[in-house]
Simulated scan of single mutants.
Amino acid sequence: MNYVIVAFFAFFGGILRYLLAIELPKIDLFPIGTLVANYLGCFLFSWLVKHIMVDRDINGRLILGVGTGFCGGLTTFSSFALDAVQLVQQQAYGLAFLYLAASIIGGLFFVWLGEVIVRRRVSE
């Protein structure tokens, strides 16, 4: 049953990632859509799944679906890596470095932001 739950939610995460990729096209080869999808997934996983849903004792299968399924389908290491390699292959070294740095630092920032928001709500 867990496979079905993960697959169901992953469908919607993947569709959102696809929509972001087509609505936020590359700007000068820079993959905005993938970056935004990964930022959103990092934030949602930290804020919604790891804190809000767990703290409120939401059903474990729903947490599995939203966390592993939706957030896993939304974020994508493979697209991140492929975009970085394509930038290097096109000799856009500055953009490749910027993309790598923005992805890693930004991803960590959005996980941190989700945690900060939860902590502020808990302390109020």
Rank of each mutant, 00 (worst) to 15 (best):
M1N: 12
Y3M: 06
V4Y: 07
V6M: 03
V6D: 02
F9P: 00
A10R: 02
A10T: 05
A10C: 05
F11V: 08
F11M: 01
F11P: 01
F11H: 01
F12D: 01
G14K: 03
I15P: 02
R17K: 10
R17W: 13
R17H: 12
R17L: 04
Y18Q: 03
Y18M: 05
Y18N: 06
L19C: 10
L20Q: 00
I22L: 09
I22Q: 04
L24I: 02
L24W: 07
L24A: 04
L24R: 08
P25L: 05
P25N: 09
K26D: 11
K26F: 11
K26W: 07
I27R: 09
F30S: 00
I32Y: 11
G33C: 07
G33Y: 12
T34P: 01
L35A: 05
V36F: 12
A37E: 08
N38L: 06
N38A: 04
Y39C: 01
Y39W: 14
L40F: 13
L40S: 07
G41S: 07
G41M: 04
F45C: 12
L48Q: 06
V49A: 12
K50H: 11
K50Y: 09
K50W: 13
H51P: 05
H51K: 14
H51Q: 10
I52C: 06
M53A: 00
V54Y: 11
R56G: 02
I58V: 13
N59V: 12
N59Y: 14
G60D: 06
R61A: 06
I63W: 08
I63T: 14
I63N: 08
I63H: 06
L64D: 04
V66A: 07
V66R: 05
T68K: 10
G73F: 11
L74A: 01
L74E: 11
T75L: 01
T76I: 07
F80A: 02
F80Y: 13
L82I: 14
A84T: 15
A84V: 10
V88A: 05
Q89T: 11
Q89H: 15
Q89L: 14
Q91G: 03
Q91H: 10
Y93E: 01
Y93T: 02
G94T: 12
L95C: 10
L95N: 15
A96R: 03
F97H: 05
L98K: 04
A102R: 09
S103I: 05
I105E: 03
G107N: 05
G107V: 06
G107W: 08
F109T: 07
F110T: 01
V111P: 08
V111R: 00
W112F: 15
L113E: 00
L113D: 01
L113M: 06
G114R: 09
E115A: 14
V116A: 08
V116Y: 15
V116H: 12
R119G: 10
R120D: 11
R121W: 15
V122M: 08
V122L: 14
S123R: 15
E124G: 12
E124V: 09
E124N: 14
E124W: 13
